[in-house]
Structure formats: C-alpha cells, structure tokens
Amino acid sequence: MTYPTLYAICGVVLFGIGFYGTVFCRHLIRKVMAVNLMGAGVFLVMIALAARTPSGAPDPIPHAMVLTGIVVAVSATALMLALIRRLHHQTGLTELPDQMEH
C-alpha cells in the first residue's frame, strides 16, 4: 500500500465519520463541525490523488480544486453559523426541532 492510497482511505474514513455526525448529531454546532469533517475528508482524498502521475511530481489540478473547495467550505460554514446564531437568538434552540413544517 502506497502512502497516497493510505491518505485516500483515511480521507474516505473521515468522510464517513463526518457523514455519520451530520446525520446523527443533534447539536447544531456539532453538525457544522461534522460537515466540515466531511469536507476535510474529500480534500484529503483529492490531495492524495494528486500523486497519480507516474513521474512523482504532484498534479496541480486537484490542488486547485481543493483550494476552491476550501473557499466554498468557508463561506458555507459562515452561512451555517450565521443562521444558527440567528435561530438561537430568536428561539434559544441549539437543535433542530423534529417537526417544524406546520
């Protein structure tokens, strides 16, 4: 097993943990962290896969993608936090209520 493969598997595991957290954690801040963990997992996979070229020199394109991904993740996190803060401010809730449709 090469290092890149190890990293990639690691990334997938992180992704899985993050997915579990996003679905099953109830506290909103935990959810935010879990989503970011998912993101980190994907980025790790991408970085690992940048070693795909036979020459050993890393492929720059996945790096560029990760950079873009980080930017997206940062803004999404900011939006999540802003919404959660506002919800907490209005209702005192730290978790999503089960039924809010009606």
């Binding site: 996003t22 939006l79 999540m80 919404l83 919800l87 209520p97």
Partner: peptide, 12 residues
C-alpha cells in the same frame, strides 16, 4: 424561526 429551521435543514 420556521424559515430559519427550514433553511438550516436545507443547508445541511
């Protein structure tokens, strides 16, 4: 609040 909850759920 309803809209915020819906927005957060959608965002996740």
């Amino acid at each position: 609040a309803q809209a915020l909850v819906a927005a957060i759920r959608y965002l996740f």
